[in-house]
Nucleic acid binder design. Structure first.
Lengths: 308, 308
DNA sequence: TAAAAATACTCCATAGGTATTTTAT
DNA sequence: ATAAAATACCTATGGAGTATTTTTA
């Protein structure tokens, strides 16, 4: 250990992070439930101890200095690890209990959760789950910031440094309007059949869009200008005759019931995504998340019932 | 952030780690320069805040509980990161200054340091360097514990999660006694020439031993029972006719001058090790270490002067 | 001049000290 | 019996509050 005793406190780091996020001493003090002078004085002490000015004070605005930005990143990390210490202690005192905030991407949530949530409630009655639906990038930054304990995502997206538990391989299928040339034929549809075909895809930001797009490029299919905001609207638009699309197996029972589309399997190599539960390295809830992931893994086949 | 305010302090974590390391409240209090009751009371508060007993107190001994072991690992991590925050601030206030504790393995230190140390002193006059010579495994655990800021090692060994800067590729050569059958011949020595040869190697624990041994196995050479404790004694024993050995290029100018041995290059693929400066991820001294590594890189060719 | 941070001061919560008791071998 | 940790109690440092001044857009 380098330092005989630490010249700053966790409290001071919290204050600093609060100011960095609110860019106001007053608001930061409010958030930390202390008076503004108390926070001011602690921050002055912190800057003194570090020998670096973290903030530039103007009457109307507070700015984070350049060195401050780097140091605040470290402050956040320390606070997250301190939270983790507390969380780990709680888990040791009473495993599989407490609050667990989980993220899910929009192309999984509406299909998996209706089945998985009751299963989880039954299996882990002491665990209070809070689900948050968002795109992969937002979920991952929330995870790193300690605002989520875990997330259900597709491994094909960029995830950064996380631990993971694979839940299922989720193959893609073709959805076409009734009577469409591709909607009939024996056996799985070969890649070549999609050439020049008009394909509808999701909005930017959905990782499923990127995965489906890669497949379409390989098939030399043509992407339509219009983009859907969810798999549900995608299926509706296909049913309306706008074109064909790819759907993940997971969504098929739900979407093929809601919209009048024909589903066809694709020929090998079948495009697919890999669903996984991920969490921060050294998360105190790693053990809980592994147990929880096992249940989610059981839930997948109950949702994406096998077809021919 | 999960917690509104942290129910423990960095000081408490220091006390806990001190107890874990000394296994005595009294000694820990002494090390932390506080009275034993002060430490006792703070630890009681910490255990209370975490809801977990970290230590089992007996009159004659203190034991770390099973959950305590996991939590103390987290405590250490937090304290190291807090040290890093302080170190990063110091570096920002005055770059390339302060104390820098570096490890070197014994098969590098005596050859590289005599040349590198003066160069570094000249180039970074504000940087106070402290060198520690030890085997790779010990250096790496000191690095993780925050007792060293960096280390010069061979990448071929097991290093764990570190950042690195490659300094040089250090090829191995054969050292044989004068008049030995292998000591003469045109061009580099092929692998096959070593078959059935008696080879002397270093003691266990030296990473160079493992690297040389791998090569000997490929060559079907035979390792002698006796093992040397340093490259210096190894060369002396070879000079005395005990057998042949491998030496890293780095040590050749020194050792071939001291002991009367003949050096021969080895045929491609030439066995070698990769010298590198490594440091903990997110070390506050990363910038300094990179600059320092550049100087070490210049030093290598000055030591391992090219031969034919 | 108005909104926000810094300063001045006061107070009390608590970390830490000394003296002592309890505990386990 | 003895060494070590816990408890009791006291002190004082400093964190936080209120009131006020200073700063600058």
């Amino acid at each position: 250990m380098r330092l005989a005793s630490h010249p700053f406190t966790l409290r001071q780091l919290q204050y600093a992070v609060a100011v960095a996020e609110t860019l106001s001493f007053r608001k930061a003090a409010e958030r930390c439930a202390v008076s503004q002078p108390a926070l001011s004085s602690q921050l002055a002490q912190l800057e003194d101890a570090l020998g670096v000015k973290l903030f530039e004070r103007g009457a109307k605005r507070v700015l984070v200095t350049a060195p401050g930005a780097e140091l605040l990143e470290r402050c956040r990390r320390i606070l997250v690890e301190a939270d983790d210490l507390y969380g780990a202690a709680q888990q040791l005192a009473e495993p599989l209990s407490g609050n667990l905030r989980l993220g899910v991407i929009p192309t999984i949530a509406p299909y998996l959760l209706p089945v998985a949530a009751p299963l989880l409630r039954k299996r882990f009655p002491r665990l209070r789950l809070a689900w948050r639906e968002d795109k992969t990038a937002d979920l991952m930054s929330a995870l790193r910031a300690g605002a989520l304990e875990g997330a259900v995502v597709a491994l094909e997206a960029e995830l950064g440094e996380v631990e993971q538990l694979v839940l299922a391989k989720d193959p893609f299928v073709l959805a076409a309007p009734r009577g469409h040339p591709l909607s009939e034929g024996p056996g799985p549809l070969p890649l070549s059949a999609l050439a020049k075909e008009d394909v509808l895809l999701l909005d930017e930001g959905h990782c499923f869009r990127a995965q489906a797009l890669a497949f379409c490029n390989r098939a030399r299919a043509h992407e339509l200008e219009f983009r859907a905001t969810s798999l549900g609207t995608l299926a509706q638009m296909v049913a309306g005759g706008a074109g064909v699309t790819l759907l993940p197996e997971l969504s098929v029972p739900t979407e093929s019931k809601r919209a009048s589309v024909v589903i066809r399997s694709l020929a090998a190599p079948v495009p697919s995504r890999t669903l996984a539960l991920v969490w921060r390295k050294r998360s105190p809830l790693a053990a809980s998340l592994r147990a929880l992931g096992a249940v989610l893994r059981e839930a997948y086949p109950k949702v994406a019932g096998r077809r021919g």
